[in-house]
Amino acid sequence: MIVTSLSYSDGVRPPLAVAGHTDDVLELVGGTLTPAERERAERFTRSGDRRDFVAAHLLVRHCAAELLGTRACMLTVVQRCEECGQAHGRPWLAEAPDVSISLAHTSGYVCAVAGHGRVGVDAEHVTGGPADENLVALALTPEEAKLVGDDNRGLIRQWVRKEALVKRGELTLDRLREADLSALPLVDGLTVPLEWQGRHFLEWTAGTVIASAVTDEPAKLHLLGG
Results as ranks from 00 to 15, higher is better:
Ile2Cys: 11
Arg61Val: 09
Val18Asp: 02
Val166Tyr: 03
Glu195Gln: 14
Asp216Trp: 04
Thr45Trp: 11
Gly117Asn: 04
Arg161Lys: 02
Leu165Ile: 07
Leu171Ser: 03
Val148Ser: 05
Gly115Ser: 07
Glu178Pro: 06
Val99Trp: 04
Leu135Asn: 00
Gly117Asp: 03
Met74Phe: 11
Leu194Gln: 12
Pro218Asn: 01
Leu28His: 11
Leu224Met: 13
Ser102Ala: 09
Val54Tyr: 07
Arg168Gln: 10
Ile101Ser: 02
His21Ile: 12
His222Arg: 15
Glu66His: 10
Asp188His: 13
Val12Asp: 09
Thr127Ala: 12
Leu135Glu: 08
Leu165Arg: 13
Val77Ser: 04
Thr141Gly: 01
Thr205Gln: 15
Ala114Ile: 09
Thr106His: 04
Thr208Arg: 15
Ser9Gly: 12
Gly89Val: 08
Asp150Gly: 11
Glu143Met: 12
Ala94Met: 14
Val192Tyr: 02
Ile101Phe: 06
Thr127Ser: 10
Leu75Ser: 04
Glu195Tyr: 01
Glu203Lys: 00
Leu93Arg: 11
Asp188Cys: 13
Thr205Pro: 03
Ser212Ala: 13
His200Gly: 00
Met74Glu: 15
Cys81Leu: 12
Leu147Gly: 05
Ala64Leu: 00
Arg13Leu: 10
Arg43Pro: 05
Gly154Ile: 03
Ala64Lys: 09
Ala164Val: 01
Pro193Phe: 00
Arg175Met: 06
Ala131Ile: 10
Ser9His: 14
Thr172Tyr: 09
Ala55Leu: 10
Thr106Gly: 03
Arg90Gly: 00
Val110Tyr: 07
Leu103Pro: 08
Arg13Phe: 09
Gly207Thr: 06
Val214Cys: 00
Gln86Arg: 15
Ala19Asp: 00
Glu143Trp: 09
